[in-house]
């Protein structure tokens, strides 16, 4: 029997858990290991997310990105951006996608 540490913010099925996404955003903890973020902060996202500068995955330690990429549900198209700060944006009623987003405000 093997024991695997699951990332804090993803369910076993690979879905983002909304309550934990909020916790990562406000407590400023890593979505992978749940420990306090450092500087810079890393975000992973599809080319679309990178292009619009709005990410669904919560902030990560740069060192945790590799571990996340190794998970079976990691998106192979994910790109990494680093920033010093970010805005946490809750969805509006009319937004088709009701997930909150992270918007880096000082890309490095």
């Amino acid at each position: 029997m093997s024991v695997t540490v699951l990332p804090f913010v993803w369910s076993a099925g690979g879905e983002l858990v909304k309550a934990r996404v909020t916790q990562c955003a406000l407590s400023r903890i890593c979505g992978m290991c749940s420990r306090p973020l450092g500087r810079p902060v890393a975000f992973v996202g599809t080319p679309l997310e990178v292009g619009r500068n709005a990410f669904h995955c919560p902030p990560l330690h740069a060192a945790c990105v590799g571990e996340l990429r190794a998970l079976p549900y990691a998106d192979p198209t994910w790109e990494v951006v680093t920033t010093s700060g970010f805005e946490y944006v809750r969805p509006n009623r009319e937004d088709a996608d009701q997930r909150p987003t992270f918007q880096p405000n000082s890309l490095l």
Partner: peptide
Amino acid sequence: DWMNDPEIHSSN
């Protein structure tokens, strides 16, 4: 945090 200052940052 937007200042990208190593000291004046929520993480540090």
